[in-house]
Design a protein around this nucleic acid. Structure first.
Lengths: 139, 139
DNA sequence: ATAGGGGTTCCACTTGGTGGAAGGTCAATG
DNA sequence: CATTGACCTTCCACCAAGTGGAACCCCTAT
């Protein structure tokens, strides 16, 4: 199967598939004309990768998940460990964004959004008078 | 003021400050020996940048916010617009992560995490039998 | 003079691809 | 047989937002 068809079937752009070969995630064969020749299992791996990436797993996680996927002697504990770590990372990211969101929403709410220059958003970003003193004088 | 002191006062690493000069966010003077020489306003701008970045604004947003900050003829509407766009982006990102989190938490929950190879996480990532048929046969 | 703790530049690397140029292949058409 | 168009190939550059390191300069103190 050529890359175009694989792209269509797996839902991944051809460029991405080439990139995945480049970093060793898939190893398609080559036809006599130099074209990549994908077997069914390559296509399955790519579909797997597409889903794992959609869940936000890093490429390195994907590499490890794929290895476990193909290893009959894996333990589900190994897989779960990767997933739990990723879940933690997601939770931390959500917490960070939620915190940003709260601050920002508060500021946006306080801003008139009119023709005047006065703006609580800029006021919050700008150093306060006390802070200016701290920044300017030896600290 | 030399870069080391500015780094300490603004809370930004010296490397980051040099980078910000590189991309034109600050324009410190130069001393006779070639060292960067920061004025108070440079330090204020860097403190501003640090806070804006902490709120997740992109460098381009920061550039625009800084321009408005220094423009007496700005309108708060312009500032608010940037902030609202950013808020939208944050909301979309949170939604995306929350969706990932839900799926992943469900899978982690279903995984025994023991010595056996059977794993609902991998099962979810792997193509189903029907999908294998779709992937393999002309589709 | 030499050690240290500043500072400088430049280049490479990170993540996960994406865009584009230059060119080879193949099937179908004129 | 030549050419067109849709494929495919490689390679190089670029994105965000820095970070790490090497090689080298400057200044002060001993």
């Amino acid at each position: 199967m050529n890359i175009g068809e694989v792209a269509e079937r797996s839902g991944l752009p051809a460029k991405t598939i080439r990139y995945y070969e480049d970093i060793g995630l898939v190893k398609p064969l080559r036809s006599a004309n130099g074209y990549r020749s994908f077997r069914d299992r390559d296509v399955h791996k790519l579909a797997f990768l597409g889903r794992a990436r959609a869940l936000g797993f890093s490429i390195e996680d994907c590499r490890n998940l794929l290895k476990l996927y193909e290893d009959d002697h894996r333990t589900s504990a190994e897989v779960k460990h990767i997933a739990e770590d990723h879940l933690d990372r997601i939770d931390r990211k959500i917490a960070e964004l939620t915190h940003m969101r709260a601050t920002l929403a508060h500021l946006v709410d306080a801003c008139a959004g009119d023709h005047r220059p006065d703006c609580p958003i800029l006021a919050d970003l700008a150093p306060t008078q006390e802070e200016i003193a701290l920044l300017n004088e030896a600290g």
